[in-house]
Amino acid sequence: MASLAALALLLHIPQALAWGLTGHRLVAELAEPDLTPATRVQLDRLLASEPGATLPGIATWADELRKQDAELGKRSARWHYVNLGESDCHYDPPRDCRNGDCNVGAIKTQTAILADRSLPDAQRLQALKFVVHLVGDAHQPLHAGYAGDKGGNDRQVNVDGKGSNLHALWDSGLLRRTGLDEDALLAQIRALPAPAEAEQPMPVPPPAAAWAQAACRIALAPGLYPPGAKIDQAYFDTWTPVAQRQLRLAGARLAQVLNAALDNS
C-alpha cells in the first residue's frame, strides 16, 4: 500500500510544476508594486518569522513540499490544478472539485485562512505560501486542461531535437527560449498593459473558477496542441506572448487577492 501511495504522489508531481521556478517568482515580483502599504506591513510581519523570506522567495514553496513535508505535499497535490478540458471548460464543483480538493477550492480556502487574523501567524504564513503559488498555477493553461493526458504531461514533443512534453514546454520552455534572464523577463512582462480589472476591488474569496475556465479555453485553443511532435519557431512566436500575458494577469490578480485579504484599512 505504501508503494502505491508513493506512486500516486509521483503521478501528480508533474502537474504541480506550473511555470517553474522563474515563472512563479515572476508572478510574485509582478504583484509587489501593486500591493498597498497596509498589505505590505502585514506581509512583512508574516514573512519576518522566516529570516530572509520574501514574496518571490516563497513562490515555489508549494512545489517543494514533497521534499520537506511528504504528507502535506500529498494532501495538497490536487490543489495545483483543475481539469476542465473534457467538459469544454465548464467548471462544476461537485464533479471537478469535490471537497474543495482542486486549485479553485484551495485558493478559496487558503485565502480565507490568510485573511483570518484570529488564526496563528504560522498557519496564515503557510496559507500565504499556498496563495502566492496557487494563483500562479491558476493561470497556466495546462493546469486547467485535459485530465486524459495529465495536463499535457503525456503529450510528447520535440524541441530542437530533444524530447520533452507539452506541459514542461509551458512550465519553463517558452520562457527559457526567450534567452532573457529573470530581470529582463520581469521588465518585459511588466511593460505589458495591466488588465482593466486590476483597478477593481477583489472579493474574498477570489473568483478562481472564472480564472480556471479562461485558462482552460487557452489550453483548448486551436494550435496550442501542435499537430505533430516537433515544436518549431512559429509555435514559440505564437504562444510565448500568450504565456507572458497570463503571467502579467496572474501578478495583477495576486496583488488584488493579497490586498483584499490583508488590507483592512
Rank of each mutant, 00 (worst) to 15 (best):
H80Q: 08
Q256G: 15
L169P: 03
E182S: 07
C89H: 06
L175K: 00
V135H: 03
R245H: 14
W79C: 05
L169N: 02
A5F: 12
L7S: 11
P193Q: 05
G251Y: 02
A221G: 08
P120L: 09
L7M: 11
A208M: 10
D88K: 13
A53D: 10
G52V: 02
H12N: 13
D263N: 10
C102G: 06
P222M: 11
Q188C: 01
P206S: 02
D237S: 06
L119R: 13
Q233W: 11
S265F: 03
A198D: 07
A31L: 00
Q126F: 10
Q246F: 01
T238C: 01
D88G: 11
V41R: 13
A234W: 02
A5N: 10
D116M: 04
G105H: 07
A53V: 08
P193Y: 07
V82Q: 10
Q126G: 07
G136S: 15
G100A: 04
G152W: 08
L30T: 02
D44W: 00
E32D: 06
V204S: 06
G105T: 11
N158G: 08
G163F: 05
P206I: 04
L4H: 10
A250K: 05
L134K: 13
A198V: 01
R124K: 09
A77Y: 08
Q156N: 13
P227N: 05
A53P: 04
Q110W: 14
G52W: 01
Q188T: 12
N103P: 08
A261C: 07
E50Y: 06
L9N: 11
L10R: 15
A243H: 12
L9M: 11
R253P: 03
G223W: 01
R248H: 02
W19S: 09
D63Y: 05
Q156C: 10
W79F: 13
G85I: 07
S164V: 00
